[in-house]
Design a protein around this nucleic acid. Structure first.
Length: 200
DNA sequence: AATATGCGCAACCGCTCCGTG
DNA sequence: ACACGGAGCGGTTGCGCATAT
């Protein structure tokens, strides 16, 4: 069986994008919008596969991207959303305007994981680590019933590809923080911000 | 100053989901 | 109901830069 490759690999560039390729991609999308990624490279005169173009646009070239360091507030939002959603980076990114799933995933793996471990928290389960620093970690403050609430909310609202409309989406209150779990596609016009997502 | 090591980011790969015929 | 193609997602890799020795 086997599916057909997403592109003709023999005639596509790989690796880092050049300035010229970036310019071509941006110019094409500005003129025609994000259409069919599969046919875009050819139409734009790029020797890249459609997937690669999509990734480059979403993660690097989109005009609404917020580049630079994550704020403490954003850190906090990511941690709380990860606690509920797990490694659903695209969903988490949807709550952080200007941030991409790839960026958040990288940031999680390089910074936040370490930060949580230093606090004695298991970054995967968000439960206190049993040994070492966990015993006296200040953040083992979350009560058991809240954990159950989280798990239940995650189950009910975050099953893969579940079509949740904002009306039926729970607002989760975590230690005074209200997590609006409604899902909406990340877009420049999206009004949400970390503050909006985690209203206090 | 040169080399080794670690870290962070951009990009790729393979899988799953979803829409359509 | 099923198969197929396209898009999207998460995991992983590789390279370049920064820091330590």
């Amino acid at each position: 069986m086997g599916r057909s490759p997403c592109c003709e690999k023999a005639h596509t560039n790989k690796g880092a994008w050049t300035k010229e390729e970036d310019q071509r991609l941006v110019a094409y999308i500005k003129a025609h919008g994000e259409g069919c990624w599969r046919s875009l490279p050819k139409a734009a005169g790029l020797l890249r596969c459609g997937k690669s173009c999509r990734l480059r646009w979403i993660n690097y070239l989109r005009p609404d991207l917020k580049r630079g360091n994550f704020t403490e507030e954003e850190d906090d939002v990511i941690i709380k959303l990860h606690q509920i959603l797990g490694n659903k980076w695209s969903l988490i990114a949807g709550r952080l305007p200007g941030r991409t799933d790839n960026e958040i995933k990288n940031y999680w793996n390089t910074h936040i994981k370490r930060k949580l471990l230093a606090r004695g928290i298991d970054p995967q389960t968000h439960h206190p680590l049993i040994s070492g620093a966990a015993a006296n970690a200040p953040s083992s403050k979350r009560p058991q019933d809240q954990e159950e609430q989280l798990a239940a909310a995650a189950r009910s609202s975050c099953s893969p590809q579940s079509s949740v409309d904002s009306a039926s989406v729970p607002h989760l209150h975590l230690g005074g923080i209200d997590l609006n779990l409604s899902l909406s596609p990340p877009s420049p016009s999206q009004p949400s911000s970390p503050v909006a997502a985690v209203a206090n």
